[in-house]
């Protein structure tokens, strides 16, 4: 198979996997398998899927680095957008079903409940990322795009804290998520160190003689956000 075909197959699998929770929730709502508290069930499934999707998005770059297979990077944007979709769904269920769109209840919870405040912050941070996920934005924003999209490291951390704070006593799965997040961040450290060294040497060389113009958009879209 050529690379294009492999990427296509991976994308199809990604779509199937990413939409499965939505299908499960929709079917559950119709056939009544969401249990005695269906709203809470929807909140849990959407929240869990959102967090897993955010963490999965962070897996792509280390995989690329470890395997050396660059095309895998093409899965990163759809994964990030699926994560955003589930956060929006999660927020929508909470606001629309759990709190019945009662503005005073919503603002009270966001202001007073630390786990909600943190989750809400995570949601807000993801909005500009989703809005600037187009090729055009990447090109237009250049270096600022790279900086902005570093927020993908912050949002899952907030998601993990949110999860840790909302459980009553059983912190095992939140801690597992925290461990996975930490591991995914640690895997990036060597790359960052190398990148810094490379940039430093580029600066030194550029002081010696001017470099030819690179194409910032592509370079950044593919490599600069780890």
């Amino acid at each position: 198979m050529n690379t294009k075909r492999i990427v296509l197959v991976l994308k199809v699998l990604l779509w199937l996997g990413a939409l499965a929770p939505t299908v499960w929730m929709g079917a559950g709502a119709i056939f009544g398998w969401l249990g005695a508290n269906p709203i809470e069930k929807l909140e849990h499934v959407s929240g869990m899927t959102a967090l897993i999707a955010l963490l999965a998005t962070l897996v792509v770059t280390p995989v690329r680095r470890l395997t050396g297979w660059n095309p895998v990077i093409q899965l990163r944007r759809p994964m990030g957008l699926f994560a955003f979709y589930y956060v929006v769904l999660h927020f929508g269920v909470w606001m629309g079903l759990d709190l019945s769109l009662e503005l005073s209840w919503i603002t009270e919870d966001i202001a007073k409940r630390p786990y909600i405040t943190v989750g809400f912050t995570g949601f807000l941070l993801l909005i500009p990322l989703a809005l600037t996920s187009t090729k055009r934005s990447i090109r237009r924003l250049g270096k600022r795009w790279v900086k902005l999209h570093r927020l993908v490291y912050v949002a899952p951390a907030l998601g993990v804290v949110h999860y840790y704070w909302l459980v009553k006593a059983d912190v095992r799965i939140p801690l597992l998520m925290a461990a996975i997040y930490t591991a995914l961040m640690l895997l990036r450290v060597p790359g960052w160190l190398k990148g810094r060294a490379r940039r430093a040497s580029v600066v030194e060389r550029s002081l010696a003689k001017p470099v030819e113009g690179r194409e910032p958009g592509n370079a950044m879209a593919v490599g600069a956000i780890d």
């Binding site: 005695a36 809470e40 759990d98 019945s100 409940r113 786990y115 909302l166």
Partner: peptide, 16 residues
């Protein structure tokens, strides 16, 4: 500390 006790969801009901 982590949630309001002013309202509750009665299982089977939509609005708190």
């Amino acid at each position: 500390p982590r949630w309001s006790q002013a309202r509750e969801r009665r299982l089977g009901e939509l609005r708190r």
